[in-house]
């Protein structure tokens, strides 16, 4: 049977990795620092997939980013999704050639022409649509460009579009919960189509294994992404994985 997926996200900006809280970034260190302070091999063996997102607010240093992806994939035999200003076939190809298996698309997600073109070239299974949202007085608004630009579409239309686009998976990311460790926002699922046909990845708010368990027990959710480096790194992820298995969540096992 198909297993649930635990996904770890790394946030990158011009040479350094960052923590994010409500989309405000806090620098933690570069690749070497991360490697020295956190046991990558252990992380890779405790998660099903890794996302690396270039969240640079200013100009993107694409060469630096690509080199980091290359370094990362060197001894890492696990699916890798890469996002950050995917706005052309060339950029997509560049990421894929650097070692990405899938592309995460946020700001250009509703650029139908681009999405169709990407899908024709790389297949829809290669594309993950990522939606950032937050509540303002109980109303939900969706954003692009690292949460800085509001989308002028209502939520039900957005979800409909996401279902019809030639993409393989969908990420829902709560800006309010991002980096807080307060737990996931399940309220959004009240607005999400019950019979949505693409795999759904839930993101924003995971602080401990109980939060993960709660999300994995929800039938609509296929995967969970967390970027919460401090809560889960060390043997945090490994322990969370063990506890989840003990609690009946079906997760992959490897040699």
């Amino acid at each position: 049977m198909l297993k649930k997926r635990l996904i770890f996200s790394l946030l990158f900006d011009n040479g350094n990795f960052f923590l994010s809280r409500n989309f405000k970034l806090q620098k933690i260190g570069n690749f070497e620092w991360l490697k020295k302070n956190y046991n990558f091999t252990l992380i890779a063996k405790s998660v099903d997939e890794i996302n690396i997102l270039d969240v640079s607010r200013d100009k993107q240093d694409i060469k630096n980013f690509s080199n980091t992806i290359r370094k990362f994939t060197k001894n890492c035999f696990i699916p890798l999704s890469v996002g950050g200003k995917v706005d052309s076939i060339d950029k997509a190809k560049y990421y894929l050639d650097s070692g990405a298996d899938k592309l995460i698309i946020n700001s250009e997600l509703f650029n139908l022409k681009l999405i169709q073109n990407l899908s024709k070239n790389f297949g829809e299974q290669c594309l993950i649509g990522s939606l950032d949202y937050k509540y303002v007085n109980d109303e939900i608004f969706c954003f692009k460009k690292n949460g800085s630009k509001k989308l002028n579409m209502n939520l039900s239309k957005i979800f409909k579009l996401m279902e019809s686009l030639p993409i393989g998976e969908v990420i829902l990311n709560s800006i309010d919960r991002d980096g807080t460790g307060f737990g996931f926002d399940f309220k959004i699922l009240n607005y999400f189509p019950k019979e949505f046909k693409k795999p759904l990845i839930f993101s924003g708010g995971a602080g401990n294994y109980k939060h993960l368990l709660e999300a994995f027990n929800n039938k609509q959710i296929d995967g969970i992404a967390t970027a919460n480096l401090l809560n889960f790194v060390g043997d945090g992820l490994q322990e969370a994985r063990l506890l989840l298995s003990k609690n009946g969540v079906k997760l992959a096992e490897w040699l």
Partner: peptide
Amino acid sequence: STNDTKGNKIPHVGFNS
């Protein structure tokens, strides 16, 4: 087809036995 997969989502993504 969603008929084949008995409602399972398409694409088939992730670790499977």
